[in-house]
């Protein structure tokens, strides 16, 4: 089997990397979660004991877990709809027949997606600055008192949501735009002949035709937003209150754990 052997040479490097450095650690994480794995087990495997679901019970009894879960749910429940609404709005504008300079606008709206999260978090931390931040300055212009965005536990999450929507909406915008472009034009024509207004065309042609893409975008965004870590880690560092972190937020970074 000359072909069979050659084919294996093509896939072997990639598959071994994925098996050893991804699949194996995932399975190990599952297995370790059922044991009392700790620093003693690290020194000698014989110290490892099966703990069943004990770790999960312990986790569920930890108030910080519920607190972090609540924060993450807040972020997902508010952030995901806002994010998708912004993406859909931008995609509809870009798709509009009367829109001009489309490539330019598309690039501009997509730019935040490719920026480095840590770098733009530094920018936004400054935009959110209570005293010198542009945001409070602009709000002051319409008579709103300065908000302590990142210090006040009530405002930290809205601030992180605003930042996350700004950073991410361009990604779904491109996918939704592709979805909009694939809706056949004659459907709109038929709706127009029936006398449907723009709004009714959107409700009864655009939304139903776009729904498979919207569902996919929704699932991907929910999955992504549940993994919130770097945004609060960078933005509320120093002034960080436990209450503003996501599930992974309040944990110390790994290098400071006892592994090293």
């Amino acid at each position: 089997m000359r072909f069979e052997r050659a084919a294996w040479w093509f896939v072997a490097p990639a598959l071994s990397v994925i098996a050893v450095f991804f699949i194996l650690p995932v399975l190990a994480a599952l297995a370790i979660s059922l044991t009392d794995f700790d620093i003693y087990a690290l020194a000698d495997v014989r110290n490892l004991r099966f703990a069943g679901l004990g770790n999960y019970v312990k986790l569920l009894e930890t108030p910080l877990f519920w607190h972090a879960l609540g924060n993450t749910l807040y972020f997902v429940l508010v952030g995901v709809p806002l994010s998708i609404a912004a993406s859909l709005g931008a995609a509809l504008l870009l798709h509009s027949r009367v829109a001009r300079f489309k490539p330019f606008f598309r690039t501009a709206l997509f730019a935040p997606v490719v920026t480095t999260l840590v770098a733009v978090a530094v920018i936004w931390r400054y935009l959110f600055n209570t005293r010198y931040g542009l945001l409070n300055y602009a709000l002051g212009g319409i008579g709103i008192h300065p908000i302590d965005w990142l210090g006040d536990p009530r405002w930290a999450m809205p601030a992180i949501i605003i930042f996350a929507v700004w950073k991410n909406f361009g990604y779904n915008m491109i996918i939704l735009l592709a979805g909009l472009q694939s809706i056949p034009e004659d459907l709109y024509e038929a709706a127009r002949i029936d006398g449907a207004s723009r709004w009714r065309q959107f409700l009864f042609v655009t939304l139903p035709m776009l729904s498979p893409v919207l569902v996919m975008v929704g699932i991907l965004t929910i999955a992504g937003y549940f993994q919130l870590f770097a945004e609060p880690y960078v933005m509320t560092q120093g002034t960080r209150k436990v209450s503003s972190g996501g599930i992974s937020g309040p944990l110390p970074p790994l290098p400071s754990c006892s592994f090293s």
């Binding site: 050893v20 650690p25 995932v26 790994l254």
Partner: peptide, 21 residues
């Protein structure tokens, strides 16, 4: 592989760290 695509990489991080160590 396609099935494994949905597993977030954070799940693997602690064991991966130990493995690399």
């Amino acid at each position: 592989l396609l099935g494994a695509l949905v597993i977030p990489s954070q799940v693997a991080m602690v064991p991966l760290f130990l493995l690399l160590k």
